[in-house]
Amino acid sequence: MTVIEFKNVSKAFHRAVGQRLLRHYLEDLMGKSDPDSFHALKNVNFAIKDGESVAVIGANGAGKSTLLSLVTRLAPPSTGQVTINGRVAALLELGAGFHPDLTGRENIRLNASLLGFSRKQASELYETIVDFSELHDFIDEPLRTYSNGMMLRLAFSVAVNLDPEILIIDEVLAVGDQQFQTKCIDKIFEIRNQGKTILCVSHVGPLLESLCTRALWLDHGQLVMDGPTHEVLQAYEGRTLHAPSE
């Protein structure tokens, strides 16, 4: 079964040239074409099957995050069609929706409800989440007293325990210390081995090679290569080596 399908997908953003005045919005609404628009994705086509684990690679600004925001349906495509089948859990930016004045416990509850947990699931998974994060001693402290690493631990623990059908990971593997990172990576492998679909953006080559069987290479919004991770990574690294000035 195909779980993610992109058909001729393009996504344009407005270049923010200074102030946006009422005139610009009116032109937008009238559907006037914007000469300053910038294509974050251009005519991208691919399909991902159930249980595949796919890496998305490319330089900064190549369109990776835009692609993930389309998969999570946070943004609609400008043209083309995006089809998604299944429950998506996105580790796009850990800690989105966390509030510094709430305690760890309150943030877990809030984040769980934002990510789509039901009341029952949230109560059932609460212990698992706290155990995974190893933050028992700080759970009733406000989040603003947490270190950055502790905050990320908590956020990762909530998101990864959602039991998703499609897991999306955006460069968030650098969580906490070495020992906790290993734990996170193990958890992601565990999810993959359960036959879940994984879409992963990272700059860590060796990890991608072991986690993902297939890779998509984006360059300036275009899909330039789609194939086995090993080959795509080799081509990508080769290109980077040969064109260091870019």
Binding site: I84, R87, L102, L110, L114, S118, A122
Partner: peptide, 18 residues
């Protein structure tokens, strides 16, 4: 269509309490 299929009441309650 949104991909979010969670518990509306639970979410609403949490946002209000927050």
């Amino acid at each position: 269509t949104s991909l979010w299929n969670g518990d509306y009441l639970f979410l609403l309650e949490n946002l209000i309490v927050k």
